[in-house]
Amino acid sequence: MMGVVKTVRRAALALGTLAAAAAIATPAAALETVSVRLKWVAQAQFAGVYVAKAKGFYEAEGLDVTINPGGPNLNAESLVASGSDSFAVGGGIESLMASRDKKLPIVGLGMMHQRTPYVFVTMNDSGIKTLKDFKGKKVTTFFTGAQHTLNAMLLKEGVNPADVTITAQAVSMTPFISKEVDVATVTLYNELNVLKARGITNVTVFAPDDYGISVPRDVLITSEKMIAEKPKAVQGFLNATLRGWKYAIQNQGEAVDIVMAAAPGLDKAHQTAMLAEAGRLTIADAGTTKGIAALDMDRLKGAHDLLLNAKVINAPVDFATAFAPQFWDAVPAADKKM
């Protein structure tokens, strides 16, 4: 008995010494250094992150955040899994599921775009009125996941995807504009604005969500290691990022200026349009009813099943380990509720 008391007392003493040493070594003001990787180059799609940094929201949470822009051929998921970056604005639910399927230790914290951010468009005079009319037509789409969404939509409408000529879409919208292809894929926040900027507004839109298929995207991710070792930093990052997004959506002009200051090569009109769309996708559905970046589990399960059917993932992914909803739940309502 005495032995136990002695051990406990010694442990308490040791802990106290450690705590005191830590207090001396790191004054209260010291910030935890972390980084966030964007899945693409700096642009208004990531406005919330830039606003959170510029407005000092990260600092207020005790974080010194470095924003690392991405680019083609750079995989945000693997950079977080390897520990090179603490957090990332990753790809879609498909990237998270595929990464978990490959045993990468990354975890979803929140979902920025509540709806599928890309849609399929055709010119009004193409003769295509419904998905059934896709039969025998030339369709281009992103082969980074969108092709599975398209297949699922077609199957749902009783069209065999094999009857549609589906090819990979290049960067340019020109083949669609010059009518070399009948249907193209556009993100609501980028390519659709490119079309509008070129004066093309007479298009029919087929949105996956109108056919009961949702592929939420721009998932905020971190690693299992971060959650185990620095849960406070994870919470702080999520709080500040959502606060940044709320601010960006409410003050879009200022948010665009903040993004432009970080990446001066951008076109202001284009970025303004991009933020408006990104904001709409963020506050859609659960984004408003629950809050920004809410994890709408029913919808995510639907996307998961679609990916499983399409064999993007080989086995069902365990949602209990793929997501850590406790962090989102703990974000103060003032930060996430619009």
Binding site: A42, P69, N73, V171, M173, A262, P264
Partner: peptide, 22 residues
């Protein structure tokens, strides 16, 4: 190299122009 992530440089200007079709 700039295509692996940055905010300044000719490679970044190229990327921005390409994806915004400028």
């Amino acid at each position: 190299g700039e295509w692996f992530g940055d905010t300044v440089g000719l490679g970044i200007l190229l990327l921005q122009a390409m994806y915004m079709e400028n």
